[in-house]
């Protein structure tokens, strides 16, 4: 079998490259934990150990509660919608309908654009009066809605942008999975008299399960990782109605220059992701093996 790794070679192959990874992944995670126990240094006094003071502030922070609610709603809103739409798209593109190439291009195009560009495009689309959204509403005689300027619609508007950007990529994964579904399984179901809907629900969808899990994990990580559109479009507003956790970290740390609280929020973020990962690992472990 495999040889033992000699020390010198191991240093070059593993230790050197991985030290970079550790320096920007593990080290900062640990350091965030340490820094969250200290307060900010100022010009007059150095940073001092404050124990769990920052965490007490965390619990008392009402704005944070809203941010966490927003993040939860955002994840719960975007992930199922993106999955549903991407499966629909994959089915359409994989069908024998005309112009599937053009459809695929239309669905996949947003995935190619940087999120900042996507944000600009939708900023214009949503713009009151001038944007296509309000022009369409005017055309039908509906009142103009300030999508980004109202607390009721800002978060939902951000979700639409995220789904628009992501669904095309997920469609590709489903397309791959659909093409791997054995034709004879579907034929057998059809012989038994199953219609196209039954074939999809009973034969195809169960086979798509690993893809769905992969897509869900990715969508979940992205829901926490990507806030470019928030920075460009709403800056978390109005009234924090569209602020997500990572955006809040950005705002606290780099606008208010509160690095200690930023570190505390980072610890919270890592903890949330860890719990979600553990949960998903558990689900994955139990349910994927049945094929």
């Amino acid at each position: 079998m495999n040889k033992r790794l000699p020390l010198g070679l191991g240093f070059v192959l593993l230790v050197m490259p991985c030290s970079l990874l550790v320096a920007f992944t593990h080290y900062p995670a640990v350091r965030a934990l340490i820094n969250s126990l200290w307060n900010n240094a100022s010009s007059r006094r150095p940073s001092k150990f404050v124990g769990i003071e920052n965490y007490e502030a965390l619990i008392a922070d009402e704005k944070l509660m809203q941010v966490l609610t927003n993040s939860g709603l955002y994840a719960l809103g975007t992930i199922p919608l993106a999955i549903f739409l991407s499966i629909s798209m994959a089915l359409l593109v994989n069908s024998k309908l005309p112009a599937t190439g053009l459809m695929r291009l239309s669905f996949f195009m947003p995935t190619m654009l940087p999120l900042v560009a996507v944000a600009n495009i939708w900023l214009f689309f949503y713009a009151p009066g001038i944007g296509l959204a309000s022009q369409i509403m005017n055309f039908f005689g509906l009142p103009t809605i300030n999508f980004l300027g109202s607390t009721e619609t800002s978060l939902a508007s951000m979700m639409v942008v995220a789904v628009w950007k992501e669904a095309g990529l997920f469609m590709i994964f489903y397309l791959a999975a659909l093409q791997a579904v054995p034709e004879n399984l579907k034929d057998a179901a059809r012989l038994e008299g199953a219609g196209p809907v039954r074939v999809f629900i009973d034969v195809v969808f169960p086979l798509l399960r690993p893809t769905t899990i992969f897509v869900a994990v990715n969508a979940l990580i992205n829901a926490f990782r990507l806030v470019d559109h928030i920075i460009v479009m709403t800056k978390g507003g109005p009234d924090n109605s569209s602020a997500l956790l990572l955006y809040y970290i950005y705002e606290v740390t780099f606008r208010q220059r509160d690095f200690a609280y930023g570190a505390t929020l980072t610890v919270l973020m890592v903890a949330i992701l860890g719990v979600l990962a553990a949960f998903q690992f558990w689900v994955l472990d139990r349910k994927t093996h049945y094929q």
Binding site: A23, P28, N35, R225, T266, A277
Partner: peptide, 17 residues
């Protein structure tokens, strides 16, 4: 672990580094 905790999440400490 880096697949989950990507550098974007750790902007605060990475900036300090």
């Amino acid at each position: 672990v880096q697949l989950l905790i990507s550098p974007e999440i750790l902007i605060v400490e990475n900036y300090l580094t």
